[in-house]
């Protein structure tokens, strides 16, 4: 069994009376491509928000590489090697594509609070930025403002920005949300390459072809709680899943 990278213990959060995440205990193993599945509003994004530190849980604990990180800020979690992307595109719209990625790399390489050296003089940052842009196929868009990119390109940029952080674990919240069908294979390709490099990826996704192509493990979340987890084949045969989730006819439908 691989090492556990992230573990949650009875993790819960309530918004008023609504328990968006309810007593979730999962462990995410190093090197396993884990996909989190569940109907709309199941609490998947909220679970990511808890793991990445955007929200504080009402109950429960989160461990990352064996350390209790429940009380740590997002910044500290990023520094420990956790990177996340957002379901709704979240980039620096009025900066260029290049600068968006470059800023990620600058953060990762800890340039520090340099105040009077020209930012363009850091050659290693620029080179690395070019590499990432190539990886996410945005090389020829590098001088465009991020806000001027098409939706699909923005999703790629979003991914490039987390890849640039070279995280040990990558939390990806529907990286293909709103992307056209033709663009999906590219995304699968990028994710496969990232996985091969040894990055642990945790994915939230609705597109079943993508889930099947990539996942080593599935976790099904329904109504804020974990329903089942395990091998993709087994899980998708599980009668409970079929009843609670597939039965609803959601799983094979190409939702956004």
């Amino acid at each position: 069994m691989a090492d556990t990278l992230i573990q949650t213990e009875n993790l819960s959060i309530s918004f008023g009376a609504h328990k968006a995440v309810n007593n979730v205990s999962i462990s995410l193993e190093k090197g396993l491509f884990t996909t989190i599945l569940g109907p709309n509003g199941a609490g998947k994004t909220t679970l990511f928000n808890l793991i990445s530190g955007l929200l504080k849980p009402t109950e429960g604990k989160i461990y990352f590489k064996g350390t209790d990180i429940t009380g740590l800020s997002p910044i500290e979690r990023v520094k420990m090697g956790m990177g996340r992307s957002f379901q709704l595109t979240n980039v620096f719209s009025r900066l260029t594509t290049f600068e968006n990625v470059r800023l990620s790399i600058q953060a990762h390489q800890e340039v520090g609070y340099k105040m009077f050296t020209d930012y363009r003089k850091f050659k290693s940052l620029n080179d690395k930025t070019h590499e990432i842009l190539e990886e996410v196929l945005l090389k020829d868009k590098k001088d465009f403002l991020a806000g001027e990119l098409s939706h699909g390109e923005q999703r790629k940029l979003e991914l490039g920005m987390v890849l640039a952080l070279q995280p040990e674990v990558l939390l990806l919240d529907e990286p293909t949300a709103g992307m056209s069908i033709e663009e999906v294979p590219t995304m699968i390709d990028i994710l496969n390459k990232t996985k091969e490099k040894g990055t642990t990826i945790i994915l939230i996704e609705h597109k079943m072809d993508m889930v099947k192509a990539l996942s080593d493990k599935l976790i099904i979340i329904v109504n804020g709680a974990k329903l089942v987890e395990g091998d993709p084949e087994e899980v998708s045969q599980n009668p409970e899943v079929l009843k609670a989730y597939l039965g609803g006819g959601v799983l094979n439908e190409p939702t956004t």
Binding site: L54, I75, R84, F86, N90, L95, L103, M115, F116
Partner: peptide, 29 residues
């Protein structure tokens, strides 16, 4: 001086914060 400051890595981060502070946080700034 101020132009140099704006063109420094620190100045760049300030622009990132103006654009989207949450995202800057999640880059580890």
């Amino acid at each position: 001086i101020l132009r140099q400051f704006i063109l420094s890595p620190t100045g760049r981060v300030l622009m990132a914060i103006r654009e989207n502070e949450q995202r800057a946080t999640f880059l580890g700034y």
